[in-house]
Simulated scan of single mutants.
Amino acid sequence: MTSIYDIQQLLKKFGTIIYTGDRVADLELMADELHELHEAKLIEATIYEAASFVLRQEMQKQKDKLH
C-alpha cells in the first residue's frame, strides 16, 4: 500500500467504491471501510496499518492545503 489508488483498488475487491466529490470525506470513508474490513478479519493487520498510514498522510496534506 503506497498510494490512495492502491487503497481504492483494495476496497474495490470488496465491492466498495467511494467518491463523494469531497476529497477529505472520501479519505474518511475509506478509513472507515478499512477499519470495518480489519475488524471483520478480511484484511491482514499489515495491510490495514500500511493503508491507514497512507490515508493519514493524505488527510494531513489536504488539511495543510486548507490553511
Results as ranks from 00 to 15, higher is better:
1 M>E: 04
9 Q>Y: 12
26 D>R: 02
56 R>G: 10
10 L>C: 07
20 T>G: 10
29 L>Y: 11
53 F>M: 01
59 M>V: 04
7 I>C: 08
58 E>V: 12
50 A>V: 01
15 G>T: 01
12 K>N: 12
43 I>M: 00
46 T>Q: 11
12 K>T: 08
31 A>N: 08
37 L>N: 01
50 A>K: 06
65 K>D: 12
34 L>E: 00
66 L>G: 12
36 E>G: 13
53 F>S: 02
59 M>A: 07
6 D>P: 08
51 A>D: 00
14 F>I: 02
64 D>L: 14
59 M>S: 06
43 I>W: 00
64 D>V: 14
1 M>S: 14
30 M>A: 06
60 Q>N: 12
11 L>P: 09
65 K>N: 15
67 H>A: 15
63 K>T: 01
31 A>W: 04
24 V>K: 05
61 K>F: 09
29 L>F: 12
35 H>M: 14
39 E>V: 15
57 Q>V: 04
52 S>Q: 04
26 D>H: 02
17 I>V: 15
59 M>H: 07
38 H>I: 00
62 Q>M: 12
51 A>R: 01
67 H>T: 14
60 Q>I: 13
40 A>W: 08
25 A>L: 13
42 L>S: 09
38 H>E: 05
28 E>Y: 15
55 L>R: 01
1 M>N: 07
59 M>N: 02
39 E>Y: 10
27 L>A: 08
55 L>T: 00
16 T>V: 15
9 Q>G: 04
46 T>V: 08
45 A>V: 13
32 D>E: 08
35 H>A: 15
10 L>K: 04
46 T>E: 11
16 T>G: 03
24 V>C: 01
27 L>I: 05
48 Y>V: 00
45 A>Y: 08
24 V>L: 11
32 D>V: 02
39 E>G: 10
9 Q>P: 04
57 Q>P: 02
18 I>C: 00
11 L>Y: 11
59 M>F: 09
50 A>P: 04
29 L>V: 01
40 A>H: 09
29 L>W: 06
60 Q>K: 15
27 L>S: 03
1 M>Y: 11
4 I>D: 03
23 R>I: 13
50 A>F: 06
8 Q>C: 14
29 L>S: 08
15 G>H: 07
51 A>S: 11
12 K>W: 10
13 K>C: 09
33 E>I: 01
38 H>Y: 15
26 D>A: 03
14 F>M: 02
20 T>P: 09
43 I>E: 00
22 D>V: 14
57 Q>E: 05
14 F>P: 05
64 D>Q: 13
29 L>N: 04
49 E>I: 09
15 G>W: 09
50 A>M: 05
20 T>D: 00
20 T>I: 02
28 E>L: 15
65 K>R: 14
30 M>D: 00
26 D>F: 09
22 D>W: 10
20 T>F: 05
53 F>R: 02
60 Q>R: 15
46 T>K: 13
58 E>D: 08
30 M>K: 05
4 I>Y: 09
49 E>W: 06
17 I>A: 08
40 A>Q: 11
48 Y>I: 00
10 L>D: 01
33 E>W: 12
30 M>S: 03
39 E>P: 13
21 G>N: 00
37 L>W: 02
65 K>P: 09
45 A>S: 13
52 S>W: 03
19 Y>F: 12
48 Y>W: 03
19 Y>Q: 07
54 V>Q: 05
29 L>C: 03
19 Y>C: 07
37 L>T: 02
54 V>C: 07
54 V>Y: 04
51 A>C: 10
